[in-house]
């Protein structure tokens, strides 16, 4: 992947700095939410697959880490204040964590993109959604993989069981991000990693940045696992709706198969995540209980904001 297009003064500075490591100028403050979001997305990407036109050593460049720190702090503050505005913050007892996660998911009343795809979306809207989704699905499960060494025994074993399935149970042909790449090709879209980052709406970048932020910080391991649980708990039924919508539009084949795989896989994963990962993590590290719910809320809230933005752009009421 090549460096993304800048969206403001900070990302312009960052892209120049990554392309020419010798530059010593001081980073300017971001001039928009979009600028801030693509800058943090780019800095995080250095810890995933990187950029062919950036120096790999930039990942641990102290000057860039300082910029990343400021952007991450601003993002985390924003996410935490959304959670407290929604009434969150109290820590459940460890035994109540799976139930509290279920309640949070059940109360989620955000608009559903899958509902729109199932019944009304036209082909262009679905292709636009798939381009947006590709920003995450082409690195599906990778943020959670960073959390493995940071967990106690039971949560670690359960996360590995889940990740093993995400990564195809050892079969590269069944790796979920690979299934999505094949789906993109089959519907005539580009399948290479990061292909549509320049098209990503700000809400989508922020959703991805939140997932990466939680995955990359050991301090936020509880939030990362809560985020994973909410993601899995809201995947099975919407994936089935995606299959129905794709089939309705004649987009059968590998893309439909990708969502079809998630109906069954995530019907398993949601229980592994809520009970065996989050439940045992809360028992072994009770101080993580509050963050487990914060992470779950963040996943649901970011998806709701993204869905609202997409449906709004299409002139569809949420």
């Amino acid at each position: 992947m090549r460096l993304p297009k800048p969206r403001g003064v900070l990302s312009e500075w960052l892209v120049a700095r990554l392309a020419e490591p010798g530059l010593t100028s001081v980073a300017p403050a971001p001039d928009s939410w979009d600028d801030e979001s693509i800058a943090l997305w780019t800095l995080h990407e250095l810890s995933f697959r990187g950029f062919e036109d950036a120096d790999d050593r930039a990942e641990w460049d102290p000057g860039l880490l300082a910029v990343r720190h400021d952007l991450e702090e601003a993002l985390e503050d924003r996410l935490r204040s959304r959670w407290s505005e929604a009434g969150g913050g109290a820590a459940p007892g460890a035994a109540d964590v799976p139930g509290a996660l279920e309640a949070l998911v059940a109360e989620d009343d955000g608009p559903s993109l899958a509902d729109h795809v199932r019944r009304h979306a036209d082909r262009d809207q679905v292709l636009e959604l798939l381009r947006q989704r590709s920003v995450y699905h082409l690195k599906e499960s990778d943020p959670s993989a960073f959390v493995v060494p940071r967990l106690p025994v039971r949560a670690k074993a359960a996360l590995m069981a889940l990740q093993f399935d995400e990564y195809g149970d050892g079969d590269p042909n069944r790796l979920h991000s690979h299934l999505f790449a094949r789906g993109l090709e089959a519907v005539g879209l580009r399948a290479e990693y990061g292909a549509y980052v320049d098209d990503a709406v700000t809400e989508n970048l922020e959703m991805n940045n939140a997932g990466s932020l939680l995955g990359l910080h050991r301090r936020l391991r509880g939030a990362a696992m809560g985020h994973l649980a909410a993601f899995e708990m809201t995947s099975s039924l919407p994936s089935r709706k995606m299959v129905q919508g794709l089939d309705r539009l004649g987009l059968t084949g590998p893309m439909s198969h990708y969502y079809d795989e998630h109906v069954e896989a995530d019907a398993v994963h949601e229980h592994l995540a809520a009970r065996d990962i989050c439940g045992t993590l809360a028992e072994d590290e009770p101080d993580q209980a509050a963050d487990l719910l914060f992470g779950a809320f963040t996943c649901l809230d970011a998806e709701a904001r993204f869905a609202t933005a997409m449906l709004g752009a299409w002139g569809v009421g949420g």
């Binding site: 099975s236 039924l237 089935r240 109906v263 069954e264 019907a267 398993v268």
Partner: peptide, 10 residues
Amino acid sequence: SSRMPWCDGT
């Protein structure tokens, strides 16, 4: 479930 014997979340 629409895909017995597997759970589909229904």
